[in-house]
């Protein structure tokens, strides 16, 4: 039957001549390519001592942001946990007491905020859902560990350090 697209290529198979049959030229050609690579620039990067540059839309470890006064932005609205397709986020809300106005921005804050980094698929939906611009996936690669429980990151690891630029 005739082919409809005419894109098929029929390869001719000729019998090998003497030089091809002894394989030595092909072996030397291959060795020459290998040898040439010794003088080229190495592509290997020695992680974690050296780190490759991340692209601008890289999504790494989460961080909970603070506002310009150093107060936590998160108000525990639960939209990140709702949008999370992997159900990696849990939180417990609490009410801000009198005298804690410098710590938390809104009258409600997250007393406990946990992300299970083994469940997280780094899709960035929590970042998109956040109405308070409190969570961003702008961190590095999540480091490896031995125990599963150590991958549940609490507020101690997630909240970014207060911005101390008072000179």
């Amino acid at each position: 039957m005739e082919a409809l697209s005419n894109r098929k290529k029929v390869l001719e198979q000729k019998p090998m001549n003497f030089w091809e049959r002894i394989y030595l030229p092909a072996i030397f050609q291959g060795m020459a390519i290998t040898f040439r690579h010794m003088f080229k620039k190495k592509e290997t990067i020695y992680y974690p001592e050296v780190q490759r540059e991340f692209s601008e839309n890289w999504r790494g470890m989460h961080s909970l942001k603070r506002d310009e006064d150093g107060r936590e932005r998160c108000t525990a609205c639960g939209l990140c946990a709702l949008s999370c397709p992997a159900e990696a986020i849990t939180m417990v809300a609490a009410e801000r007491k009198k005298g804690e106005e410098a710590l938390y921005r809104e009258e409600k804050y997250a007393a406990v905020y946990e992300i299970n980094m083994l469940r997280c698929i780094f899709c960035g939906l929590c970042e998109e859902a956040c109405p308070k611009e409190a969570i961003y996936l702008d961190g590095p690669i999540v480091p490896s560990d031995y125990l599963r429980k150590d991958f549940i990151y609490g507020k101690d690891k997630l909240v970014e350090q207060p911005f101390n630029s008072k000179v």
Binding site: A76, C77, G78, A81, L82, A93, A94, E95, K108
Partner: peptide, 9 residues
């Protein structure tokens, strides 16, 4: 019920 949970949880 204040701040106990979001309704959808």
């Amino acid at each position: 019920f204040r701040f106990k949970s979001r309704v959808w949880f």
